[in-house]
Design a protein around this nucleic acid. Structure first.
Lengths: 243, 243
DNA sequence: ACAAAAGTGTTATCAGTACACCCATGC
DNA sequence: GCATGGGTGTACTGATAACACTTTTGT
């Protein structure tokens, strides 16, 4: 089976990146620009994505797309939904754009999201000219990518409440307040600092390091790490029914 | 756009049906049987599924497949995952079977699950010879359908803890003990009856009816209903972080 | 009257919430 | 020495968990 694109199946990737300094949750987008005879035909942004190859699993495709875009591998990824509306690529601009591409007009896309921290991506020489945009302040988006991002974000909001995926968005060493800021960014809520600290510090899988922040112009905070090992060992489903 | 099958994209449906009498959670399966020269080549079961048509959304396809199988419409459905492993249809038996079908060898399937109660389905003259099987005692399954069912069940287990989808598996009028039995079936746990009753009866959207069970050979129980209206009105995300 | 499942109350413990001030550090 | 964010304690409330017997009905 030689590598061959499947023309009606793609994978799209919503890359979430948290910027611990500006305390914003961002999404990585690629500009889409086309002009003809001095007239701008298409000027917006899209998610990164690509056809599935014949020999690949869907996960493989997502991994490949992320690597191609950011150089990163082994990041947290989650397949969250397939989008297959027959009209999902048939806006006027999308039709213009697709003329230059090999996409089948009736393509279904399997959407993934990735979680990482913006610091891990060097965009300076990015060949797709990828840029970060705050998730709450997105530019105009092509195809059905606005919808895809919205659903990815909804899924993330729900998942971060019950699984320790929040730490995938932070550096390995973080402060308690980093975690609080991140929850506040994602969920758009305010959290009481004292209660949050107590709760987090009491978790056995949140480990205080023998280190403090360096290079900050104020009292440096205690650094912590998340231990997946301990989390996995102590984890037991408690089946709390909360409907 | 005339109706035309997309040969490499299908939808598969995991139909969960709860039997309130036997207190079992079941899955609807279709036999797959093929013999040649007196030799049985294929004899197992599969989920119901079908190609996506060119003009359909994925949700449309799932709805159509369920209607074709059970006659039912407007049941709770959830798209939970796409399966696209290149080898997912290439077991020996699957290859034999597929010769008679129009399936592309590299087909990705978008999997849905449905929730309903077994009483609503009349299988006596079912043209696919569909049968119910307890989710914990499944027969041999073709393709990757064992995996698909497993993941559907995992998703259901998690979802029923935080959303009132449990009521989709019950008749409109049910007893508190029905709900408890169902949770116990799904999750495989024991629940304290007194605590569970109190918890459920205190919910404003669980409404006591002016009715009791009839035709039972013991003390008839109070019947209740679930009010989606009230649930939706009072629902507010409380963002409880429980990692 | 008996079998079978329906229904009922209390206490202890834990987790969540609300709330305001002092502390350590870099500059 | 001062500005800045880091860090701390207590009391209240509501939910969960453990636990065993009585009541109602059909037969």
């Amino acid at each position: 089976m030689k590598p061959e694109k499947i023309l009606n199946i793609s994978v799209d990737c919503v890359v979430f990146g948290y910027d611990v300094n500006t305390k914003t949750l961002n999404i990585l987008l690629i500009p889409r620009y086309l002009e003809s005879k001095g007239k701008v035909l298409v000027d917006d942004f899209v998610l990164t994505g690509y056809h599935v190859y014949n020999h690949e699993t869907l996960d493989d495709t997502a991994t490949r797309v992320l690597k191609e875009l950011t150089g990163l591998t082994n990041q947290y990824k989650k397949q969250f939904k397939a989008f297959g509306n027959p009209n999902r690529l048939t806006n006027e601009k999308d039709l213009i754009w697709i003329k230059n591409e090999e996409f089948n007009l009736r393509t279904i896309t399997v959407a993934y999201y990735f979680l990482l921290n913006t610091e891990d991506v060097d965009l300076r020489h990015n060949k797709h000219k990828a840029q970060w945009f705050p998730v709450n302040d997105l530019p105009e988006l092509g195809f059905d990518h606005k919808k895809i991002i919205k659903e990815a974000y909804e899924d993330l909001k729900i998942k971060c409440l019950s699984e320790p995926i929040i730490f995938k968005l932070l550096p390995d060493k973080f402060t308690i307040n980093d975690v609080q800021d991140l929850y506040q960014s994602i969920l758009g809520i305010q959290i009481d600092n004292r209660n949050f600290r107590r709760k987090l510090i009491n978790k056995k899988y949140i480990i205080a390091l023998d280190e403090k922040q360096v290079g900050v112009s104020k009292r440096p905070a205690q650094l912590y790490m998340f231990s997946k090992d301990i989390y996995d060992k102590m984890f037991q489903k408690n089946y709390l029914i909360s409907i």
